[in-house]
C-alpha cells in the first residue's frame, strides 16, 4: 500500500505529534516499507480464527468494593510540570 504524507498527517493529528517536514518525509517512507513487510500476513488464511487478545486463560479477576484511603494530594501532584497545590493546570480549555 502506498503511504502518503496526508495519511501520516492524519495519523499524526490522532497521536498529537507534529513532525517537521524532513522527519515527516523520512517517516512516510519508513512506514510504507514497514507496512509493506506486514503484508506477508495476507498470505496466511485466518478465516474463522477468533482474534486472541489475552494469551493466558485468566478470567473474572475482580476486586471487592471496599474503600482504601486515597493518595496524598501533594505527593500525587508533585510531578506536575506546572506546580499548583490543588490541581493540574492546562491552557484554557473550558469557559
Amino acid at each position: 500500500m502506498k503511504i502518503t504524507e496526508e495519511m501520516v498527517d492524519y495519523v499524526s493529528i490522532l497521536a498529537r505529534l507534529k513532525l517537521p517536514q524532513e522527519e515527516k518525509t523520512r517517516m512516510t517512507g519508513e512506514l510504507e516499507q514497514i507496512l509493506a513487510y506486514m503484508d506477508v500476513l495476507d498470505g496466511l488464511d485466518t478465516s474463522g480464527v477468533e482474534p486472541m487478545s489475552h494469551v493466558f486463560p485468566l478470567k473474572n479477576v475482580l476486586r471487592s468494593d471496599e474503600v482504601v484511603p486515597s493518595g496524598d494530594r501533594a505527593e500525587l501532584l508533585a510531578n506536575a510540570p506546572v506546580p499548583d497545590e490543588a490541581a493540574f493546570l492546562v491552557p484554557k480549555t473550558v469557559e
Binding site: A15, L17, L19
Partner: peptide
C-alpha cells in the same frame, strides 16, 4: 503536540504512528 513531538525520540514516534495507523 510540542511536548510529544519534542519529548519522544524518533523510534518511539515511529512506533506510535505505526500503532495509531
Amino acid at each position: 503536540e510540542k511536548t510529544r513531538t519534542q519529548g519522544f525520540g524518533a523510534e518511539v514516534k515511529r512506533r506510535i504512528l505505526l500503532g495509531t495507523f
